[in-house]
């Protein structure tokens, strides 16, 4: 007995796929070759779906704007912030971050001379491709550049 569901599912066969497209339609024989080609501009891949405005991605830190108030450490639920006493700045571990953006809300920021409003030292970016083999890789730690040179 034909039911309504059957018609609906049959209709889906001729419709465009609902899912987001893969980077390429079929799995390539050689992935690295394809990546090289894309980098040289010879091949094209489907770009990732854009994120909406106000998306909470990877946290970005501008050390020059940081006044060392430690409010972000106070509110961070995941303890992803570390205080560097030598520099009076913070270090942020993205691998521990839970992307709640509380630190961004609470950050007072700093006003440089000639500016009207204080700009926050912390902000959420659109970056969401964060997979890495090492959770302490440079890509996943936000810190002042001096921290690395001084080894603190």
């Amino acid at each position: 007995m034909p039911t309504k569901a059957m018609f609906l599912f049959l209709k889906q066969l001729v419709e465009r796929p609902f899912t987001n497209p893969f980077p390429v339609k079929h799995a390539p024989k050689n992935v690295t070759a394809l990546i090289d080609k894309v980098q040289r501009g010879e091949a094209e891949i489907n770009p990732p779906v854009p994120v909406p405005e106000g998306f909470r991605g990877k946290l970005k830190y501008t050390p020059e704007r940081c006044i060392g108030c430690r409010l972000c450490i106070l509110v961070c639920p995941a303890n992803a912030m570390e205080w560097i006493p030598e520099l009076k700045k913070i270090r942020h571990y993205v691998s521990r971050c839970m992307f709640c953006a509380l630190c961004v809300d609470v950050c007072p920021g700093k006003k440089f001379p000639g500016e009207e409003k204080a700009v926050k030292a912390l902000r959420m970016s659109d970056e969401f491709l964060l997979a890495d083999y090492n959770k302490y890789s440079d890509n996943l730690i936000e810190e002042p550049p001096e921290a690395k040179e001084m080894g603190v």
Partner: peptide, 29 residues
């Protein structure tokens, strides 16, 4: 299972809306 995928197709819309309103698909904070 065809019903599973059909209903979850409908669910995507509300997850996208929640992402727009709050900044993430899940764990809205």
């Amino acid at each position: 299972d065809s019903l599973l995928f059909w209903t979850w197709k409908g669910r995507e819309k509300v997850l996208d809306l929640l992402e727009l309103l709050t900044g993430n698909r899940i764990n809205y904070s």
